[in-house]
Design a protein around this nucleic acid. Structure first.
Lengths: 244, 244
DNA sequence: TTTTATAATATGTACAAACATACTATCATA
DNA sequence: TATGATAGTATGTTTGTACATATTATAAAA
């Protein structure tokens, strides 16, 4: 295993060091709880300053992959990797995993000026149009969720794509954009007239709102997704552990 | 509001700076998205080095309380009350981390025969009474959540414990039960008459329901917790990655 | 008018150098 | 033997300095 850093590379040294440490601590001897080399020595070995090395170590400490102990040194945290590897799926996959066959009731695609919070998330101006997709979906019995998605202009969608295909697969194959990180916010609200109409419920009835901020592999925003779920039709589950 | 740092204090400067920033960004003008003073000026004002200040800012950036933008500056991330999925905390800690002082409006403790699904979760018979705790909680302004908790008999609670103390701390110190794993289900529902009365909303208004199945370190069920949140007062946040 | 430089500004990266602090092991002393 | 002083070691804290880079606003040139 090579433990070298390229000083001529455009990639910042502390990022290189971080990646290098990530690889390093995957090795069996470190998984067993072995200590990392001490900071001064390791910095010397990598030919970077201790400060820069600490920058890299700190990031992994924040992520709880490493634990510092005074006088002892820094070692790999033994966290069994269960809570972190919670991976997310597309809506169709998610539903199929629950044994539900999904059906599309409506599909609209349009170009709109983004609202402030969307432009802010995308980090673009409000006078640049973005692609908006709306979908009414459910099982074979009834529609139970209304989705509104906005896509970052960077992706280069034309609006002519086949949105009936699995979305993230299509984006990956046809536009080389790979979804990687999703931040979600779940809240409850009373349905307004528009949503109530779509879901065929009374205005004022409760809906579960799930906002998704989706980022690509470069941590760049790529999709803003809003889902309005008919209450009782959707339960969001989370499993989490206390670190120790 | 005092924006000073005590150089003679035993508390490290970057920790003081961090706390100071936490207070600062709670101010309404920053909640609105105002930019922090730039690093060089702020460092000068606090009489600490830019490096030290950045140490403090970085921590808040990692917690996603602050967002850096090149050339623009650093601003407060737009988040309401939210709960991170990783490293879950007690309700009080969770709220205090967001700068909210919690207040207990009601507290009842009783012994009841468990309903089927609770007995099932605890793996006990329905003729064995369990301790039930109900709490109406909120901030200093209003109550916004009603909790119902059931505790496994194994814990050995008498019902005479001081439930005003942080719950999991108390269980750990006085009963040696350490909460470790939490499985949660979030859904939305219309408030029934009872909940509506407690939260002072109209029956039929939306509430967010958060069920928690809490296990101890031996993966044994220890608590069943049900929270009814007034809609709009609570946002549940989740962050997940695909591969990694 | 539109495009193209350019300057200004804030964060980003990186280094070297000290000293502080917590903890441990060892050795000396009562 | 038990206690206490001490030296050693690794992380923790802090500063000063310098240049890089991305972005925006402004001014100059087409």
């Amino acid at each position: 295993m090579k433990l070298t850093i390229d000083h001529k590379s455009a990639i910042p040294l502390h990022i290189q060091a971080e990646n290098l440490l990530r690889e390093l601590i995957r090795e069996p001897e470190y998984q067993a709880g072995k200590l990392l080399p001490n900071e001064v020595d390791l910095a010397k070995k990598l030919a970077i300053s201790r400060t820069t090395l600490r920058q890299a170590i700190n990031k992994l400490v924040y992520e709880e992959l490493l634990v510092r102990k005074k006088r002892l040194g820094t070692k790999v945290a033994h966290t069994k990797m269960s809570s972190k590897s919670m991976n997310w799926l597309s809506f169709t996959q998610e539903m199929e995993a629950r044994g539900i066959t999904i059906k599309n009731y409506e599909l609209h695609v349009s170009w709109v000026f983004p609202e402030d919070h969307i432009a802010n998330f995308f980090d673009i101006k409000t006078d640049k149009k973005v692609l908006k997709m709306e979908r009414l979906r459910g099982n074979t019995e009834e529609a139970f969720v209304y989705f509104i998605s906005y896509f970052h202009p960077r992706i280069g969608l034309s609006g002519e794509e086949d949105f009936k295909k699995p979305l993230y697969e299509m984006l990956e194959n046809e536009h080389s954009v790979i979804a990687d990180l999703s931040k979600e916010e779940i809240s409850a609200k009373a349905a307004d007239k528009f949503i109530a109409g779509k879901l065929e419920i009374d205005p004022g009835s409760p809906v579960l709102i799930r906002k998704r901020f989706v980022y690509d592999q470069g941590e760049r925003p790529m999709e803003y997704n809003l889902g309005y779920y008919k209450a009782e039709s959707f339960v969001y589950t989370v499993e989490s552990r206390r670190s120790s």
